[in-house]
């Protein structure tokens, strides 16, 4: 499945923001997942752990907000 490739994209975006704002670690990530996006929340959580392992986002708290529609949006990042 492609939950992993989505989490790799998330990793890239999160780490880019971290560098841009000169912060040390990602504390929390909020994702909005469209209910028609064809993505499984549990598989996503597992892929998240795999993708972030060994990075400054490894201990980030992941919150998933289900919404209508087909998109997957990185809604918010909390940087420490």
């Amino acid at each position: 499945m492609h939950e992993l490739s989505l989490m790799l994209e998330l990793r890239q975006q999160a780490l880019a923001q971290l560098a841009l704002h000169n912060r040390r670690r990602v504390v929390a990530i909020t994702l909005r997942i469209g209910l028609a996006a064809g993505v499984d929340a549990d598989a996503l959580a597992l892929a998240f752990a795999c993708a972030m392992d060994g990075t400054p986002a490894a201990t980030a708290k992941l919150t998933i907000e289900p919404v209508a529609g087909r998109d997957l949006v990185l809604a918010a990042l909390e940087l420490g």
Binding site: L6, L31, L72, V73, L74, A76, L77, E78, G80
Partner: peptide
């Protein structure tokens, strides 16, 4: 001291690429 946590409203799609 630790800096205040910074919250960013990013609002980017993971499918954007």
């Amino acid at each position: 001291c630790e800096p205040e946590p910074l919250t960013l409203q990013v609002q980017t799609s993971l499918l954007q690429r």
